[in-house]
Amino acid sequence: MTIIQNSCIVNKPIEEVYEFLQDLNNHEQLMPDNIYNWSSTKDEARFTIKNMAKLSLKISQRIENQEVVCVPLEEAPFEITLRWKTQQESSEVTKATFVIEAQLNMMMKMMAAGPLQKLADHQVARLKEILG
C-alpha cells in the first residue's frame, strides 16, 4: 500500500472545515487545472483527469468533525482511498490532512506516485486558500 499525504492548518473551527469537506460539491474548488467534466452531488463526484482517466468517487464514510472517506464508485485503474482527516488544534484552528492510500505495483508507483503527491499538495494548499 502506497500512502501519500499532506496537511495544513486552517484558521477556522473544526465544524466549519469538516462541513466544507463532507460535501463533494465543494471539492471541485480543490482540484487542479487538469480536472474537467466535473459533476457532483453531496455524496458523489465524477470527473476526467486530462490525458489520464475518468474517475467516479463516492463518500463511503463520514465521522463527524474527524474524517471523510472517498472510494471509487466504478472500477478504477488501481485500488484507491481518499481520506480527509480533521483535528482540532484550538477552538479556531483546525489541522486538515489529506491522505491518499493506493494499491500500486512497482510500475504504477513509478508513474503515479508523483502526480498523486502533487494532487495531495495542491488540495491542501487550495483548502487553506479557500477557508483561510
Rank of each mutant, 00 (worst) to 15 (best):
C8F: 07
K50F: 02
Q29M: 15
S60H: 02
A76S: 14
K12H: 07
I63W: 00
S39I: 12
E44T: 15
N105E: 00
Q88N: 09
I35R: 04
K42Q: 11
V99N: 04
N65K: 04
N6H: 06
L73P: 03
C8Q: 03
A125S: 06
I80P: 01
C8L: 04
C70S: 15
D23F: 13
L127Q: 13
V17K: 07
L24H: 11
M108A: 10
F78H: 10
N26S: 04
M110G: 09
F20T: 11
E101L: 13
I49P: 15
S60R: 03
V99L: 11
K54H: 00
L127K: 03
E16Q: 11
M110D: 07
L55P: 05
T94Q: 10
M1V: 11
V69E: 10
S7K: 13
M31A: 15
T86Y: 00
L24D: 10
A76R: 14
I59P: 05
E89S: 02
I49T: 13
A102F: 05
N34H: 08
L30E: 04
I4A: 04
L57N: 02
E64P: 14
N26C: 01
R46D: 06
I80Q: 05
E28A: 13
N6A: 15
I4T: 06
K42H: 01
P72A: 14
I9L: 12
K58V: 15
W38P: 12
E44S: 12
L55K: 07
Y18M: 03
E129V: 06
I63T: 06
V124K: 05
T41I: 12
S56G: 14
M107R: 11
D23R: 10
L127N: 08
M106F: 11
W38C: 13
S90F: 00
E16C: 05
R46V: 09
I9K: 07
T48D: 05
I130M: 07
Q87C: 00
Q5K: 11
P32E: 06
E75A: 13
E101G: 01
P13M: 08
W38A: 10
E92M: 14
N6T: 03
E79L: 09
E15I: 09
M106K: 10
L24R: 09
L21A: 14
K54W: 04
D43E: 10
N26Q: 10
V124Q: 06
I49K: 15
P77G: 00
E74L: 12
A102V: 01
E89K: 00
P32Q: 07
E19W: 00
L30N: 14
Q22C: 13
L30P: 11
D33W: 11
E67Q: 14
C70K: 05
N65R: 00
S40C: 05
E44A: 08
L21I: 09
G132T: 09
R126H: 01
L104M: 03
M106L: 11
V99Q: 08
